Simulated scan of single mutants.
Amino acid sequence: MDTLEITTPELINPMTYAQFKALSEALVAENKTTGPEQSEQRIGFTKLNQQRLKRVEKQFVLQPALQELLAQNQRAWKWLVLVEAWCGDGAQTLPAIAAIAAQAPNIELVVLLRDENPALMDTCLTNGSRAIPKLICVDAETGERLFTWGPRPTAIQAQVKQLKADRPDIHHDELVQQVQLWYAKDRSQALQQDMVQLLQEALQTQGAEV
């Protein structure tokens, strides 16, 4: 696995997961969202995402293989997650990421808004774009970047690519709806499969006893 040893830019307005949820709820009450684009569409997505967050929290079950790997890690890690309140993929994955981190005393989860942290966002672009969510795992002691993940679980992204190939003229709204259905059916399994692989590689890289 390639590791990146780069200086992490200053984190602007870092939040806990609970603080991010509270911010999102407050903005919904004000008919607003995060980021500079206060469009009706993004505000609507933010409202929908409150339901998605709660559903993922309720349904999440930690896979035994992932739980075992979390227990094996003896190093202090920071998980930096770049997201926005209107992001549908973020609403489906951030609660699961938070639940995973909560099971590991050595992991500190830090939630960051993409548009407030462009310098950090630009260190982990996807095909040149600022696609979110993005999870960056950093060794808290050395600052070494161990892995990045996102913006979607590998298995779900493969389904998206296949659908686009089969239906190149598919309307964006229909695509978004289908992706949300895949997330609902998957129940965070694909994300956890990705995390198992990434943690195995990170532990090996750090010379941990596996």
Results as ranks from 00 to 15, higher is better:
186 D>G: 03
33 T>A: 14
19 Q>S: 09
205 T>C: 05
114 R>Y: 06
82 L>F: 08
59 Q>K: 12
44 G>I: 00
132 I>W: 10
177 Q>W: 09
104 A>E: 03
178 Q>N: 06
85 A>D: 14
38 Q>P: 09
163 L>A: 14
60 F>N: 05
5 E>V: 08
22 A>Y: 06
145 R>M: 15
13 N>A: 13
85 A>Q: 05
101 A>R: 10
9 P>F: 04
203 L>M: 11
98 A>V: 04
13 N>I: 00
157 Q>K: 04
134 K>S: 10
23 L>K: 13
72 Q>F: 03
39 S>T: 15
100 I>S: 02
81 V>K: 05
199 L>N: 13
167 R>L: 13
114 R>H: 08
169 D>H: 13
15 M>P: 02
130 R>T: 08
86 W>G: 10
150 G>H: 11
79 W>E: 03
6 I>V: 15
210 V>W: 13
145 R>Q: 15
67 Q>S: 06
201 E>M: 11
189 Q>E: 01
112 L>T: 11
88 G>P: 11
111 V>R: 06
15 M>H: 07
160 V>Y: 06
108 E>P: 08
186 D>R: 10
147 F>G: 10
128 G>F: 10
109 L>P: 11
189 Q>A: 03
88 G>M: 10
79 W>F: 12
179 V>A: 06
194 D>N: 05
200 Q>L: 02
115 D>W: 14
31 N>W: 04
140 A>Y: 02
181 L>R: 14
78 K>V: 03
44 G>K: 14
101 A>D: 09
165 A>R: 12
49 N>K: 03
81 V>P: 07
196 V>L: 04
168 P>L: 07
99 A>K: 09
148 T>Q: 13
206 Q>Y: 01
108 E>M: 00
130 R>E: 06
208 A>N: 02
37 E>V: 12
61 V>E: 08
15 M>G: 03
8 T>N: 04
151 P>K: 11
65 A>F: 05
84 E>P: 04
69 L>I: 10
200 Q>C: 06
180 Q>T: 05
85 A>F: 06
171 H>Y: 02
205 T>P: 00
63 Q>M: 09
38 Q>E: 10
177 Q>F: 12
198 L>V: 08
195 M>P: 07
13 N>S: 10
131 A>L: 14
196 V>F: 01
40 E>A: 11
167 R>N: 15
80 L>A: 01
91 A>D: 04
92 Q>K: 08
168 P>H: 05
161 K>C: 00
156 I>V: 05
124 C>I: 12
40 E>L: 08
154 T>A: 14
9 P>K: 07
140 A>L: 01
140 A>G: 01
139 D>C: 13
108 E>W: 00
160 V>W: 06
78 K>M: 07
180 Q>D: 11
151 P>G: 08
116 E>D: 15
67 Q>H: 03
205 T>E: 03
198 L>A: 12
